Computed example of a mutant assay.
Amino acid sequence: MSSTHKAVRHDVMRAGNLAVVLGEIDRSGPLSRAALAERTGLTKTTVSKLVGDLIDGGMVVETGAVRDGERGRPGVAVRIHGGRVAALGLEVNIDYLAGCVVDLTRTVRLRRRLPADNRTAPPAEVLTRLGELGTALVREAAALGLAVTGAQLAIPGPIDPASAVVHHAPNLGWRDVPVADLLDVPVPVRVDNEANLAALGELWFGAGTALGDFLHVSGEIGIGAGVVVGGRLFRGAHGFAGEFGHVVVVPDGVPCHCGGRGCLERYAGQDVLLGAAPDLATLLDRLATGDPAATAACRSAGEALGVALTSAVHLLDPDTIVLGGVFAPLFAWLSKPVADAMASRLRRMRGTAVPNLIASQVGPDAATLGAAGSVIMRVIADPAAFLAETLSA
């Protein structure tokens, strides 16, 4: 074997071992080097070298002494370090732009949300404003000592992840928009569907950490869903799974922006719910006082949502359904009509096997958190790539 082949093989092995060690610290830390060697099956010498590389790269840090057993001197534990590596999560939604910076411990360090009517502005203008927001967050992160290694953008519509082209986002009015070409931020950017990233946000930052298989429903002006199976996102054959807002609940009903009729979002979306109030805060105030129009709006939306979720339950059989976005603060008024609509349709066939219905623990920040979390998970899965970028910078 040539020296070049040996070097390549060594680099590949080192990259894999770095991922194994960092992943174990992320899952189970703080851990001593001896404990890491025992858990990973690597030699203590190899683990010490890998841990040293991760410390130099700012990905882990030594913490207090820890005793691994009854005998011997206590070891020095290492844990994930939150003071160096960070990720940027961005979101374009119909009525706002948002961004957050999350460090490697999954702690949110910066968060911004800007109201905007993105239905009336050209895509290039929207993405220019988002680029300014993202660039400002990267600079603010640098002032905190954080190096933002990458960004992920959430968009409310089907995305081609390979090309980062938004083929059709009906509520934005976007068709075949090359997002990556129009968005200017000082770090590499990937693009994904808002509902998918919201489900991942719930998985990594909210209730999903304690759940098995769950369906996350994002209630905004549009309605999307993310399906998590065995701790992993289900995307479908072409990456378009989860366009829940366009499930038909009223055949030949109200026309929808997608070109169809009777879609769920025309009966349970944010615009419908806010028909009883000018904004969400006012709607919540009116609901708290028992306002009949506000209560009726939630009941009607909940019933439509329950009808759509019935089909989703028959098809997917999730353990739990998480209501996110604007549905989370409205959960107290939506949950009963949703549950009643599902139960009346499901119990005859399924008995008591009706999914648990809960409110999102991360609410409106789910998509930006999922976006930033996706970058963090890529770093954890391939720390060698980050270390190589750091050395070449």
Rank of each mutant, 00 (worst) to 15 (best):
D117M: 06
L104V: 00
L104A: 03
V102S: 04
G99T: 02
H81L: 02
T105Y: 00
L110F: 11
P115M: 03
R84S: 14
V108C: 08
A87H: 05
V85P: 09
R106N: 10
R109I: 06
C100R: 02
G89F: 00
A87Y: 05
T107L: 13
Y96F: 13
A116Q: 12
P115W: 07
H81T: 00
P115F: 11
G99P: 00
V101H: 02
N93S: 15
T105N: 08
D117T: 08
L97T: 00
I80G: 04
V92I: 14
V85Q: 07
I80F: 12
G89W: 02
L110H: 10
N93A: 15
R106D: 02
V92G: 08
V92K: 08
V101R: 03
A86F: 13
A98P: 01
G89V: 03
E91P: 10
P115D: 15
A98N: 04
Y96Q: 12
L97A: 04
V92N: 04
R112N: 05
A116R: 15
G82D: 07
D103R: 01
V102I: 13
V102M: 09
D95M: 06
V92E: 00
D117V: 13
A87L: 05
L114G: 01
T107M: 12
G83R: 14
D95T: 13
P115H: 09
V108W: 01
L110N: 06
G89K: 02
Y96S: 15
D117E: 14
R112Q: 12
A87D: 08
A116K: 06
G83A: 10
L90W: 08
R113T: 14
Y96R: 14
A87F: 07
L88K: 08
V102A: 07
I94T: 15
R106T: 03
D103E: 07
E91V: 04
G83T: 11
G82I: 07
N93W: 01
A86R: 08
H81G: 00
L110S: 09
T105Q: 14
R111M: 09
V108S: 02
L110I: 11
H81E: 09
L90M: 06
D103W: 02
D95V: 02
V108L: 02
T105I: 03
L104N: 07
I80K: 08
A98V: 01
V85D: 08
D117A: 13
L97G: 05
L88I: 06
R109Y: 04
R109T: 09
A98Y: 02
G82W: 07
T107P: 00
R113G: 05
A98W: 01
V85C: 14
R113V: 12
N93K: 10
R112H: 10
V108Q: 13
R113M: 12
P115A: 11
I94H: 03
V101I: 14
L88G: 01
E91M: 05
G83S: 12
L90R: 05
G99Y: 08
A116N: 09
L110R: 11
V101G: 07
R113C: 07
G82N: 13
L104P: 09
C100Q: 03
E91H: 00
L114D: 13
L90E: 10
G83D: 09
